[in-house]
Design a protein around this nucleic acid. Structure first.
Length: 568
RNA sequence: GCCGCUAUCGUCUAACGGUUAGGACAUAGGAUUCUCAAUCCUACAAUCGGGGUUCGAUUCCCCGUAGCGGUACCA
């Protein structure tokens, strides 16, 4: 054991330039003046040039909880690993989250600017602060310099594995923890690089209890690892930055994904050694995905799963409101019931509760997400769909963007099909689908498609007859009832039944049903056997185009017949 | 390997120690005087295994199993 004076001497050797004291730092971060129960929460991502879907989930939870308690939401950038850092990583996070309506009260707002009095909010700009605390710990003997090389570390590990004991730098294996002032001074003079390690006094055989706001009460072993606090490049590790930043910034609850749970013993000891009041934790389970042909679960992975990257949803034009609603259901399953009862109320009114989080990891279910998307888009007006589709297309589909811009009124009419009344059409999941919606209404797409074959239902001859006769009775001014009556009449004239039950009982009397008549017209006009309400489609298309397409189809059949006759 | 967390239909989940274990998504049928989508109805489908405690266990305890996480000068 070294004396107090020796530790002070070592601290001076290690940090000759650090003049500030811990108290000086604390003066710059006064206690926040907030109402009772207000939560100060932070989302702390690394700028890796990738916005993970799980980040949207976690940050949404934190921001929502902060807002609903009249607290503060902070964005803090954890760029302490220079190897993983990517240029433009900060704005990617800020803008990406903003796209989902997730905005912070304090933190970076772009690559260069920050707002808030408790900054800087970028860890690489806080290096001086960490040094003050590191120096303080060395002076108190709760941290020490360690000059061990990678090779030595590997050797230790090998020995430990041979002996079958826990691997790591701890206890008697931690050869530098009790080095003398002279030994340390020698290494420094030789310019050897070093890290600052925690002088752990924890006992692996002792347990302690804590309460997690999601997981509840749990027991963990004490930490006894002399973990690295400051790396040789002067950057802090996550373990060291976490208690310092969260304490200085006045965080009331640390929400972070479950992968941090196992580090709680380290943080627990660090809070004690730093003399800080322990901040509460909430560890939500991460979003999972099925792997191995459904045999096992694993974290949604940025390398294997396109849906792990937020960009995937943006590029496909998934409505971000629906994604937030899906995450809300994953977080608090009672959100769904609330939504049913409050269909017109803003999502912000929903009270998220940490106690309602499930402890186990939820599988990310894109099918369910898409169901929510459909429901969401069904609540939008044709004008809104037009606007949102255009926004999407301007970024990701030039051709569609051009069409939308040049044909605003026509396109709104298209999006308006089956959008009024009680029966709202729900066939749009994402704004990328707008292209499919426009398909039958623009000749440039229409001409690319070929007619679907329905000759097994209605013979070519009869099809031709239906189309030709229909051209004569078609009146674009008819309302939907008259329109359908005419289709029925035409059917009856040609031996088709307009009553379904009658047809079922006396099939042999008829060639088919009105449905078949409508189907022939549908294929003639849209080339497809499936389409939105045919009456409305024809209305939007307009008389000229409808007649032109009917005539074209009749001609098409004629051509086919002739070529058939040529066959032997 | 060691340490820890978790465990209800295929999926997300609900159920003061007492329920025919509920709902939603998915799937399959059916209904709907034009198809598809939607909507409505119906069906299918679960308490991981074994021990306790208890009059009674999905719920509490122990053991096992499985999944997940951690075991870095990454976060």
């Amino acid at each position: 054991m070294r004396t107090k004076d020796e530790n002070i001497k070592i601290a001076k050797l290690l940090f000759p330039d650090v003049k500030e004291k811990v108290d000086d730092i604390f003066k710059k971060y006064p206690k926040r003046n907030l109402e009772e129960g207000a939560m100060v929460l932070r989302f702390a991502p690394s700028p890796t040039g990738f916005l993970h879907t799980g980040s949207v989930y976690t940050s949404m939870v934190g921001v929502k909880l902060a807002k609903q308690s009249n607290g503060i939401a902070i964005l803090r950038i954890e760029d302490t690993d220079k190897k993983r850092e990517v240029e433009g990583g900060i704005s990617l996070i800020v803008n990406g989250l903003k796209g989902f309506g997730i905005e912070f009260d304090e933190g970076p707002i772009n690559e260069t600017e920050q707002v808030g009095e408790y900054g800087p909010y970028i860890q690489s700009q806080r290096l001086d602060i960490y040094k003050v605390f590191a120096k303080d710990m060395v002076e108190k003997g709760t941290a020490y310099p360690c000059f061990i090389t990678d090779e030595e570390l590997a050797e230790i590990r090998e020995k430990q594995e041979e002996l079958g004991v826990r691997t790591g730098y701890y206890g008697d294996w931690a050869k530098w923890r009790n080095a003398t002032v002279e030994e340390i001074e020698k290494e420094i003079k030789e310019g050897k690089s070093f890290v600052i390690r925690l002088y752990s006094t924890g006992d692996i055989d002792k347990s302690f209890e804590m309460t997690d706001r999601i997981k509840g009460r749990f027991t963990l072993r004490e930490n006894d690892m002399d973990i690295v606090l400051l790396k040789s490049d002067g950057f802090p590790t996550y373990h060291f930055a976490h208690p310092i930043d969260d304490t200085l910034m006045g965080i009331t609850l640390v929400i972070r994904t479950e992968e941090w749970f196992a580090s709680v013993p380290i943080h627990y000891e660090l809070f004690q050694k730093l003399g800080f009041k322990q901040i509460e934790y909430a560890h939500p389970a991460p979003l999972m995905k099925l792997d191995n042909e459904g045999k096992s679960k694993r974290k949604l992975s940025k390398r294997k799963d396109p849906e792990a990257d937020v960009q995937y949803y943006i590029e496909n034009g998934y409505p971000n409101e629906a994604i937030i609603e899906y995450f809300l259901t994953l977080a608090n399953s009672n959100f769904y019931d609330w939504r049913i009862q409050n269909s017109n109320i803003d999502t912000n009114e929903f009270q998220l509760k940490l106690e309602k989080f499930n402890k186990a990891g939820a599988l990310f279910d894109i099918v369910k997400l898409e169901d929510i998307c459909k429901d969401y888009i069904a609540t939008l007006s044709a004008e809104e769909i037009y606007g949102r589709s255009l926004n999407w297309a301007r970024e990701y589909d030039e051709e569609v963007a051009k069409i939308l811009e040049e044909n605003q009124e026509y396109c709104i009419n298209i999006f308006n099909i089956e959008r009024s009344g009680q029966k709202i059409r729900k066939d749009m999941v994402k704004f990328k689908d707008s292209k499919e919606q426009l398909r039958i209404f623009f000749d440039r797409f229409f001409d690319e498609d070929s007619y679907e074959d329905i000759s097994s239902r209605v013979s070519k001859d009869v099809q031709k007859e239906i189309v030709q006769k229909y051209i004569n009775i078609y009146n674009p001014d008819d309302d939907s009832t008259v329109w359908f009556d005419n289709v029925k009449k035409l059917g009856e004239e040609l031996g088709f039944c307009s009553d379904r039950k009658e047809y079922e009982t006396n099939r042999e009397k008829y060639k088919g049903t009105v449905g078949d008549i409508a189907m022939v017209l549908r294929v003639a006009i849209t080339k497809k056997t499936q389409s939105p309400d045919l009456y409305q489609v024809m209305n939007v298309l307009g008389k000229e185009k409808v007649v032109q397409r009917l005539e074209k189809y009749a001609g098409e059949i004629l051509k086919q017949r002739e070529s058939h006759c040529l066959l032997p």
